[in-house]
Design a protein around this nucleic acid. Structure first.
Length: 628
RNA sequence: GCGCCCGUAGCUCAACGGAUAGAGCACCCGCCUUCUAAGCGGGCGGUUGCAGGUUCGAGUCCUGCCGGGCGCGCCA
């Protein structure tokens, strides 16, 4: 029953090995196309990149001047925020990285570089610290400028173009059409959907996809189970659901609907007559239910791919023929697994795919003994199909119980695409559903699990989506139905939403307390933003300025949960400032005696509100404007 | 037995190969005449499971152990 792909997960083992590396941005040649414009835009918005370019330029100048040898590799030169804000706004490791090949001491390179960087615009101070870090502090005016940029960019703030319009296929949920979605599926659903949004946000063309496993034995079981309910709907008394069939009560609806459509047409028919039709009917009903449940979560897939359709159009044969032509299919006998009860084991010749040639541990069977294809064979055909539709970056979101399936699928993708496509798999760990600390018992309706719908109906879709992103996907997650609706700082959903609502609260009051101010963000961008000088105000603005970088990093690592953590940081910084205004009235946002400063403060508040809203949008959570 | 994932404060978890490993909870001490105290500030708390290795630098990468989870020929 766990036989679905959508279990909870893990974030990315392959995070380090992914092919989504951003190359250094080249100077722009043609500014005519929208893409080029966007590229230019992203360089300006992610100021870390901008400064990295400037620093590399200075390093090249040092080479020209003879201070550094030629032919240095700048690939490892990084520009990033220092961990400790006291060290400045930007730090670079350039001197330490280049020291060895340059044959100079890191501190010496650092000093020379620092001297040059001091001359750059917007740079207030540069110093060398530790083993050779070069720390830059930027002028306050730079942050005022950044804040204005945030406001002028509006909801587009943070969008980047590291994806360069490349296609990415994200396959997620892909639950078997044998029952309603469960809480376990919810995690994969949310992780996949948020990842897709994240990738879109940085410029990938994303296809959201669902693979319907409608060809195996499980859907025959579904058909037989539904048939029983059909007879029940026609008045027959069903004592007990035989073991091996699905007992879930949701199938009563299917039986009822079938009886209404077909009457008693199948009641005396032999199984081989009714099964195909009942199966199709039941699958359709299940998929409608699943789509409704996904819609309740705000999830909509672009493509629903059917395993049965692949089989019926002989795509599997075609796929296997391709592999055969490459000499990758053979008949052989596998070794018995060690350490596993070998009781019913007997050596048996099987049709095998040489997945070991592509990194798998053993070769994998592609045919069952009844001659039909294994799930794996069909899945290979499916992945080839994705590739042929133009996707060279494939992402699958699976439950952790599918971990053993990853290598063979990656091997298959390598073989089928001749290494032109890459498959990355995110495994989602289990979700433990609790209520006030106690495990929640199974649901009768689903037959086994608490359904996603039940949970969404109880706590709301935004809460489900946010909580599912509060852990890395490879860590298990406790979902406590009581805690997640608690209105306290312990509840991250509430905490972030509260910050957003507080922003709106301030903006609502602004008109009364300081009349005549425009609250429009582009107007606020023209406020005297250099009047924001408090260290916590600047810290907040710097945090907002880091949103593009956060997005790019999260997308590159395939870790949508980082957005949730970032929003908690923004919320904390904002709540902190709020309370600071309680202690020190001069730090209040609304100051009737100083409309100019008020406008600047409101600009900051508006920017916080915008960034939180943008982050929640990536997560698929609706921001609330009021919490009372 | 083999493969994959995980192991960080008492608890739940962060940390882009970087500087003195960070939050929250719990515990202790503070902050509401004022924009939502549904909040904020401070204190306490660590040999990042163990041992090696690579690196200028390792919680992060590599190897080996220990502990936990998942998986391991015709289930999907």
């Amino acid at each position: 029953m766990a036989a679905t792909r959508g279990s909870p997960g893990r974030g990315g083992p392959s995070a380090a090995g992914g092919r989504l590396h951003r190359r250094d941005d080249r100077p722009l040649r043609h500014a005519g196309t929208p893409q080029a414009l966007r590229h230019l835009c992203s360089d300006i918005m992610n100021f870390y990149k901008d400064f990295r370019n400037k620093i590399v330029t200075e390093l090249e100048a040092m080479t020209t001047a003879g201070a550094l040898p030629a032919g240095l590799d700048y690939a490892n030169v990084k520009v990033e925020p220092p961990r400790d804000p006291d060290h400045g706004d930007l730090a670079t490791n350039a001197a330490m990285v280049l020291a060895k090949t340059a044959g100079q001491k890191p501190r010496a390179i650092a000093e020379a570089l620092a001297e040059r960087l001091r001359a750059l615009p917007d740079v207030e101070a540069v110093d060398v610290a530790g083993p050779g870090f070069v720390n830059l502090r930027l002028v306050p005016g730079f942050w005022a400028h950044m804040l204005a940029t945030v406001l002028r960019s509006g909801t587009a703030w943070g969008e980047g173009n590291s994806g360069r319009g490349r296609k990415v296929n994200v396959e997620y949920v892909s639950a078997n059409p044998t029952g309603p979605l469960t809480v376990g599926h919810a995690r994969g659903a949310v992780v996949g959907d948020a990842l897709a949004s994240l990738l879109e946000k940085v410029g990938f063309k994303v296809c959201r996809e669902y693979y319907i496993n409608d060809a195996g034995g499980q859907v025959d079981t579904l058909a037989r189970s539904a048939y029983l309910r059909y007879r029940e709907a026609l008045g027959e008394r069903i004592e007990e659901i035989p073991s091996g069939l699905y007992p879930g009560e949701y199938l009563k609806d299917v039986g009822q609907a079938l009886s209404e459509r077909d009457g008693d047409r199948w009641i005396d028919a032999p199984e081989d007559e009714w099964l195909p039709e009942v199966r199709r009917f039941a699958i359709d009903q299940m998929m409608e239910m699943i789509k409704r449940d996904l819609a309740a979560m705000g999830i909509e897939h672009e493509v629903f791919a059917s395993e049965r359709a692949l089989v019926e159009r002989h795509a599997v044969e075609e796929t296997v023929a391709f592999l055969e032509s490459r000499g990758l299919i053979y008949t052989g006998v596998l070794e018995p697994p060690k350490g596993k009860a070998p009781e019913d084991w007997e050596p048996r010749p099987q049709t095998l795919f040489r997945s070991t040639e592509f990194g798998d541990d053993i070769d994998r069977p592609i045919r069952k003994s009844d001659g039909s294809w294994t799930y794996f064979a069909a899945d290979m055909a499916y992945h080839l199909d994705k590739y042929r539709r133009g996707h060279t970056t494939l992402v699958n979101i699976w439950g952790a119980d599918h971990g053993g399936y990853v290598k063979r699928m990656q091997a298959a993708v390598k073989a089928l695409t001749e290494e032109k496509a890459e498959l990355r798999v995110l495994l989602c760990q289990l979700v433990k559903l609790l209520r006030a600390g106690e495990p929640v018992k199974m649901s009768k309706r689903s037959g086994n699990f608490v359904t996603l719908r039940e949970v969404v109906d109880e706590v709301g879709r935004g809460v489900v989506r946010f909580i599912m992103l509060t852990r890395k996907n490879d860590a298990s997650l406790d979902f406590d139905l009581e805690k997640v609706v608690e209105q306290s700082k312990d509840n991250p959903v509430f905490y972030v939403q509260y910050a957003h609502a507080r922003c709106h609260s301030v903006l609502r009051h602004a008109g009364d307390e300081v009349p005549g101010l425009s609250l429009d963000s582009t107007t606020l961008a023209d406020a005297k933003l250099d009047r924001l000088t408090d260290s916590d105000e600047l810290a907040l603005i710097k945090l907002l300025a880091g949103w593009p970088r956060l997005l790019e990093g999260a997308a590159e690592a395939y870790e949508p949960h980082r957005v949730a953590f970032y929003l908690q940081e923004v919320a904390a910084a904002f709540h902190g400032l709020w309370t600071k205004g309680k202690d020190d009235a001069s730090l209040r946002f609304l100051l009737p005696d100083d409309p100019e400063l008020t406008a600047a403060r409101l600009a900051m508040v508006r920017a916080v509100q915008q960034v939180i809203a943008a982050g929640l949008e990536v997560m698929g959570v609706e921001p609330v404007e009021e919490l009372r």
